[in-house]
Structures are given as C-alpha cells and as structure tokens.
Design a binder for these strands. Structure first.
Lengths: 335, 335
DNA sequence: CTGAAAGCGCTAACAC
DNA sequence: GTGTTAGCGCTTTCAG
C-alpha cells in the first residue's frame, strides 16, 4: 500500500501538506492540490483504514452477532443489515453464536476490543433461556451501543427492533376463527424463545376470546432433534378433527401441509394453514402457504439505522424499541 | 477502553514494562509481572486491536465476498468459514455482491485499504458472465492473497476450492442410467455459471456414453424471474415419458417432484429424481429427495485453511486448487 | 500557503 | 530489570 509519506517524498512536500491537499483544504494552493491528487491517483493511493481508525477512534464497522445463519430468517435480516450498512459506509463483522451463550459472550469480548463501533445482536437460545445479560451490560457500560433484534432480552436497557409477535399470531388465529374453524392447532419448534412465547400467547388469547369456540388449545412443541414428521403424524392421529393450523416457525407449517394432503385432506376446505415461514418455502407447496410476513430485511435495515443514529448521537437518552409491522399474507392455504 | 498508558501510570512504571509484563517477557521480574497482570485483570484491560493491527500490519481479519446470502449453499459455506476462522482467531468481514459485479468490485476496493489480510470470494454471476478479472488481479498484485470458491474464474491465478461439478453430475446421471431410465431430463437455473456449465457437461457426457440410451439430452433452463412451476409443468406436458430428472440447483428438483406426484407419477417407480439441493429441503418432500451432497461447510473451512496457510507462508509458490469430494446420497427418490 | 510536531495505542530495539 | 525512543499511517494544532 502506498502511504502519505511516499507521496510526500515524491512531491518534495510534507506529509501534512499531502494530507490536507487530499482533503481539499482551503489552506493549500490549487496547484499543490492538483499535483498531489494527480500523483495519488496515479499510484492508486488509498488511505489506510486502520490508521484512520486508530486516530479517530472509530472503526466504521458494526459487529453483528446472530444465532444461526442457516435459518432463513436470520439470513434475510443479515441481508438487510449488510445492504443498509454498505450504503452508509459501514462494514460488518459477523459472528455466529450457534445458539451458544459462550460463543456469544466470546464474540462480544473479541469485538469489544475496539474492533467495532457498535453491535447488532439477536440472542442465542441459551442466552435467552438462562437470561444471561452480563456480557451485554458490560459492553453498554463501556458506552458501546447495542441494538437487539427479534430475540431480545427484557432486562437489558438498549435499543431494540422487534415485530409484534403477539399481535401477529393473535391476528392469524383470529383469521382462522373467522373462517369458522373449530379445532385450531399450534405448531412450534421455538417455545423456549421470547418470540415463541409471545406467539403462543397471541394464539391463546384469540381462542380465549372466541366465545363459540369449544376446543381447548392444542399445541405441538417439537425440538430440532425430534422427527418432526412423525410428531405431526401422531398429532393428526390423535386429533383427526383439526381443521386449522397455525405454525409459528419456519418449517412445521409446510410439513403439516404435506402430511395433511397425504391423508386426503383438501386444503383449504378441510384444513386451513398459516405459517410464520418465509417466501423461500413458497415453491414447495401447492396451494401456496399463507404466511405472516415478518419483513426480515426491514428489521435488519432498521437495526442499522438505529445503531448509526445512536453512534452519531442523533438519538439521545432513552433506548428506543421499534416494532416492525407484520402482514398476514393470505395465499392458497386459507380461505 | 483502558490502555497500557493508564496501567503504567497507576503502577508507576513505563508503558513498555507493562507491555512486556503482560506478554510474560523474561526481562521483567516475577513480582512486576504479577502486579501488572493483577491490575490489568481488575480493570479488564483489553489490548486495542486497531493499534495492534497498525503496528503489526496484520488485521487478523478475512474479507468474505459472496453473491447471495439467501442461497442456502452460500449460507452454509459462510457457516464453515466463520467457524474455522473463529477457531483460528480470525474475524470475518462479509460483503454481499448480490450478483452484481460493481458491488463486488467496490467491496474489494473498500476492504483492500488494509481492512483485511486476505479474501475469500465466490464470483457474482455478472462477474463470471463478463469474465471480469481486473479487480481481483489488482488485489493479488498488492500481495493480498485471495481464495476463490465454487464460482471461480479460470483466468485468475489464485488458490481455489471447488467441487468436482462435472464428475458429480456425471455420476448422478450414470446412476439414473443404471436404473434403466430411458428419458432423463436436466433442470437448471444456473446455466450461466461455471458450475452450471460443468454440471451440464457431466450430464451430457454420461448420456453420450450410454450406448443403449436413445433419447437426446432434454434440458430445461429457468431463470429466477420465470414461473418455475409453469415451466416444469410444460416440460412434463411436452415430454410425458420423462422417467429421470437431474436437478443441478437448489429448488427445481423439489418442485418437479411435487408436480410429478400431482400428475399421479409414482416416485421412484415411474420417475427418479436427483437434486443438488441441500438438506434443508428434506422435510419438504416425501419420499425424501436423493441429492448430491456438496459439503458446503467443508468448502468454507478449507477456504479459510488455505488462506491462512498462505498468509503464514506455509504454502509457497504456485496457487493450489482443492477439490472437495461430493457424495451421491440416495434417499427415497431413486431406486 | 507550507511544515513541524504531537499523539492515537501498541511493540521492540536499544539504552541504562 | 526497567525505561527511553522511535515508528506503524494518519490528522490536526500551531508556527513560520
């Protein structure tokens, strides 16, 4: 890499003159500016980012810590984060916690050493379950801003970007009820997470409020290790009268649909299905799955915007929580 | 952040003593080492990474440029990259080119300013189609190592990690032929890419070598904008005798399977299907899709290993190309 | 209009 | 065993 010093030597001027010239300072003569810039261009001078970071005490880099890149929701958020960050001249360093709270803590420690100006995080499952907050609080105490999204920690006082999980699920259940469904089951593989709990509550609330609904709540909680397909089969065996399904995760809705079709159920006549899935599953069902759209890309962009505003002190004082609207997108699996 | 200087002041010693003590230098007395370390721990001293980077001219950071994070293959590679990098003490900065060669070029420029020690890249579609090489060559000329994976550029002389696309596809087609299939169609949405071309050639070669195979090649090329489902329907309309499908991408195999089942075809009796898809589609078909496993995580890990070896001069001279083995994983959609 | 000097936080050669 | 000094590449104040 070519440095200011090298330019200065070739031009027989001082380093500071070169620096000022490149910044178009008023102090420097037009002529010198021209000469300096010409040579800089010729030699393809690029200011050393590390030196600038050291000097300015800003890295123009955001640390992004997500639980699982293989989950399409997080991949989409990351997409939004990258796009917005790039547009605003920020780089992103990513760490994948892999749902482990140790890895998450380690990532904060590693990037807390001046590598990034701030963090965007979604908590690992373990972090949420154990409600571990010290590592994030320690970062905040150092005045490094943190934005949490989706899987947020109640006890931490920082900017947050969430969707209205309760409301989204409530609305979806309401829709199924309005269709006249008599036995609506909830499918989930995320009951442990804050978002899972909220979605479950939305479903419960909707059922509770439905005066003419006689069945109690029916919930199937599967874990990653379970054989999801078997679990769903036995749900259908046990409750052959299920005529509505609300899947609050990425996968179970699609699987349930395939299993139902195989049993000869007509969709949506005999059974209505709504998923929290993403568009990426759309090619995989026919009719197409009705879903709650989470606007993951927006979540990413909003998180970046919030963080950068905070870095520039454009937001002051109290932490802010932004709620990104969801949409119930009705496709072929609902009436 | 607490600095060496602050520690030095509190302890009434010099900055260099503190530095040496923390590194456990032989020069420093046991006693001083203890005192320094105790205070460092108490104040939670963390060496400033930016300063170390400036001094050492190494960032311990890898720039990763991928075309599309929403593609599960790249997400998996990224997973492998992150894991291996983290384990070796490297951070990764990611840029998403979004298949645009301008964005890719820009990412190289931005990160080329001393932000990273080396690059791991998979070329954007546009870069491959236009065969743009200058930006990468320019980086290599600055002695910044680059590892390309999957979508590599022939004309660039750097380390590469690929799979045997030709061989994998050849083997898969051979398998379908061995099953006695008489009309094997190839489905693709990546014909423009190097990997797509290689896979197509593998298929063609296998058919060519099959003396008792009378049909010519049947290929359906769809693009992202097409209605994939319609295109596949009309393929089946046009060639009702298709009894074997080789899908060389992530999606088309699954869609074809659903369409075929809907037409009353029995899988795998009437129709055999092999996809290049990932495990993430497995829950979505019944029987489960037979696939060519690409070991994406390995590709990521191997790329990191190669790059870091190159950075440490553990690999010398000529660029290396590593080929990661694929596996044909037979599940329910083949005999 | 230009340059010298200090300093960001750290390391390391070289004194003492 | 400890301290002084210089320097990584840059910005910025202050002198000239």
């Amino acid at each position: 890499m070519v440095t200011l010093k090298q330019l200065a030597e070739k031009l027989n001027v001082s380093v500071s003159t070169v620096s000022k010239a490149l910044h178009g300072s008023e102090e420097i003569s037009k002529d010198t500016i021209e000469r300096v810039r010409a040579l800089a261009k010729e030699l393809n001078y690029q200011p050393n980012k590390v030196a600038i970071s050291l000097k300015s005490n800003k890295t123009k880099t955001i640390g992004v810590i997500i639980p699982n890149i293989l989950n399409h929701f997080f991949a989409k958020v990351l997409y939004g984060v990258e796009e917005e960050a790039a547009q605003r001249g920020y780089d992103i360093i990513i760490c994948i916690s892999n749902e482990s709270s140790d890895k998450e803590i380690h990532s904060f420690e590693v990037l807390g050493n001046g590598s990034v100006d701030g963090f965007i995080v979604s908590a690992a499952e373990e972090t949420q379950v154990k409600n571990q907050t010290q590592h994030i609080e320690s970062i905040l105490r150092q005045d490094i801003p943190v934005v949490m999204f989706d899987r947020v920690l109640e006890d931490i006082d920082c900017d947050k970007v969430i969707i209205d999980d309760f409301g989204a699920s409530y609305e979806a259940a309401k829709h199924l009820l309005a269709e006249g469904r008599k036995h609506i089951a909830l499918l989930s593989d995320i009951e442990e997470l804050s978002v899972g709990k909220l979605r479950i509550n939305g479903y419960l609330k909707a059922l509770e409020e439905a005066s003419n609904y006689t069945n109690g709540p029916t919930m199937l909680h599967v874990s990653q290790k379970d054989n999801i397909e078997e679990r769903i089969e036995s749900l259908f065996d046990k409750h052959p009268d299920i005529d509505g399904i609300l899947s609050i995760d990425n996968t179970t809705g699609v699987v349930a649909m395939h299993k139902a079709v195989k049993r000869g159920k007509r969709i949506p006549d005999d059974l209505s299905i709504i998923g929290f899935s993403d568009e990426n599953v759309l090619p995989f069902t026919d009719p197409k799955l009705s879903t709650i759209k989470q606007h993951a890309v927006d979540i990413g962009k909003t998180s970046v915007a919030l963080l950068i505003d905070r870095l520039n002190n454009r937001v002051d004082g109290m932490p802010v929580t932004k709620t990104i609207k969801t949409n119930l997108v009705l496709r072929g699996t609902t009436k």
